[in-house]
Computed example of a mutant assay.
Amino acid sequence: MRIKGSVVVITGASSGIGRAAALRFAKEGADVVLAARRAEALADLAAECEKAGVRALAVPTDVSDVAAVDQLAERAVAVFGRIDVWLNDAAVGVYARFDDIPPEDFQRVLDVNVMGYVNGARAALRQMRRQKRGVLINVASIVAEVPMPWSSAYVVSKAAVRALSLALRTATRLDGQKHIHVCTVLPATIDTPWYQHAANYTGRRVGTIPPVYSADRVARAIVDLARSPRREVTIGTTGKTAVLQHRVAPRAVEASFGSWSDKRGVRRSRRAAPSSGNLYRPSTDPSTAAVSGGWGGRRKTTTRRLATVGALVAAGVAVRRAMS
């Protein structure tokens, strides 16, 4: 598909991967429809996108509200006449041991990360069937393949997103919709403000697990998928390695990565008060309306990558032992 002149709807556009994707699509000449809960952040992003010479429409939206998502699609079509690409990216999360997650918080993660994607997919595919073409891109995560112990609700939601993509691909094929594509993106650890936004009941400050990749790296992959759709793309060498190893020896990899993420992601960090993060209301911190969360991205990952090598080698040894 030709990106220049296309119409792209992006949920979760106010920060992180969604914001990076909006800027990347705008740079490539696409008109963008920007959705998130933070109106001011969307307005600023729209202005930034328009500097690239494209049109940008900001539509404040809570993706867990099906009516609001339907209105988002209707606004996009009313202004631009069609939807060529729909990117489902809005997500929330909670860090805690499974037993310590308030049930309403677990449900909220599913409402946003799963039903939000369902709502987006329904609205997008409804319009794409009228057009007989379009690309739906769902942002999942490598945790859909290699789970982490402190984020069970997020793991469940991203596994569901991956399954949703599979079901939708099968359905569009059954319907004979050859020009409607459903793609899934599985990023590894990405430098975004997501970690500052997440609810946290661990008693410790949470953060990234190295190596950390830039959000723009994911954005470039998303634009490439819109241009040349593929079923599924994993972002980051570490993510690709982990997924491959997990498929060969799941027990060994789960033990290795689970222990590693526990030590690196939570136990060594500073104490922090319990917080529901941005689960129920958007962040009021303007500094988090950004692509980067300050975790390093591509510019500061050298030492972190070296620290990762030992863990990957250990996982590889465990895999070989499991296979022998």
Rank of each mutant, 00 (worst) to 15 (best):
V291G: 04
Y213P: 02
G93S: 10
D99S: 14
T61Y: 06
K27W: 09
A121E: 05
R133D: 03
D84M: 06
A73Y: 01
D84E: 03
G120Y: 02
A140K: 05
A242H: 03
V66D: 12
D105E: 14
G265Y: 02
S287Y: 10
R230Y: 06
R217T: 10
A124P: 03
A252W: 00
E50D: 10
Q177K: 10
D62H: 12
R82Y: 06
S287A: 15
A35C: 06
R251H: 13
A78M: 04
L225P: 04
D100C: 02
T238F: 10
M115K: 12
S165I: 06
A315K: 00
R270K: 15
D70W: 06
R55T: 14
R19F: 01
T172Y: 07
G207L: 02
G176I: 13
E104A: 15
I17G: 04
L312S: 09
T170I: 01
T234I: 15
R133C: 13
M115I: 07
D224H: 11
A215P: 01
P103G: 08
G239E: 04
M1L: 07
A41R: 09
S292Q: 01
R204Q: 14
A198M: 08
R305M: 14
S269L: 14
D216N: 13
F98H: 03
G294V: 09
G293P: 05
A140S: 15
P102D: 05
R299P: 03
A96H: 02
V69G: 08
L166H: 11
T192F: 00
A90K: 08
N88F: 08
L136Y: 11
F106T: 07
Q107F: 06
R173Q: 15
S256P: 00
V54D: 10
T234H: 08
S256K: 11
A68K: 10
S165V: 03
Q107M: 11
A188S: 15
A272Y: 10
E40D: 15
V7L: 01
V8I: 05
A123E: 04
A289R: 01
V146I: 13
A68P: 10
R305N: 07
R251S: 14
V33G: 01
R304I: 09
R268A: 06
W194Q: 14
V266S: 09
A90L: 11
A96P: 04
M148G: 11
Q127F: 08
V69F: 04
M323G: 00
